[in-house]
Design a protein around this nucleic acid. Structure first.
Length: 159
DNA sequence: AACGTACACTTAT
DNA sequence: ATAAGTGTACGTT
């Protein structure tokens, strides 16, 4: 079975995906789309629905190299939460700068939620456009808040 | 607020 | 083999 490709919309961008079954080989943000479908969980995520993307797999997650350990650690960050480069480095037993490097080369953003990794003092970086990172984070925050309201949790309980 | 340096890993030469 | 480059962190000034 061949690797298929497709895209879906996220805000002003298209998310292009190369995948087969539950394995995602590449994700990239682009200004234009390509015909074809994307994995269901990814489509739901882009539609603003809180989605557990850990059901998807990626080759970059496997192995004992530093990047693989970092990517696995990043995947543990839950929807709507963030962690710093330093925190990830500690879990993966490496250095914050290596985490930054690994994020910059992340072949499958969203599947490996590099947008949830922020600097100790600010937001950190994101390619191709920092605005995507901001939009992803605010989208997740809003979605979580809505979930809490829908389930009847009062504001005082969440503070 | 700006600057320097340690840190560890990858990629390029 | 070795140097350069990182989406950092932290201390000092």
């Amino acid at each position: 079975m061949a690797v298929t490709s497709g895209s879906c919309r996220f805000g002003l961008w298209y998310v292009r995906v190369e995948w087969r079954g539950d394995t995602v080989y590449r994700v990239q943000f682009a200004a234009t789309g390509t015909p074809g479908d994307v994995p269901g969980p990814l489509r739901q995520f882009c539609a603003g629905r809180p989605t557990d993307l850990t059901v998807l797999d990626a080759p970059a997650l496997h192995g004992d190299e530093a990047y693989a350990r970092i990517y696995r650690a990043v995947r543990q960050i839950p929807y709507g939460k963030t962690a710093t480069y330093g925190e990830i480095a500690e879990i993966a037993r490496t250095h914050p700068r290596v985490v930054g490097q690994a994020m910059a080369r992340n072949p499958v953003p969203l599947v490996i939620p590099c947008h949830r990794v922020i600097a100790a003092d600010g937001i950190g970086g994101f390619s191709p456009d920092i605005a995507i990172k901001e939009e992803l984070l605010t989208m997740e925050k809003k979605a979580v808040r809505k979930l809490q309201l829908d389930s009847g949790i009062t504001q005082s309980e969440t503070q």
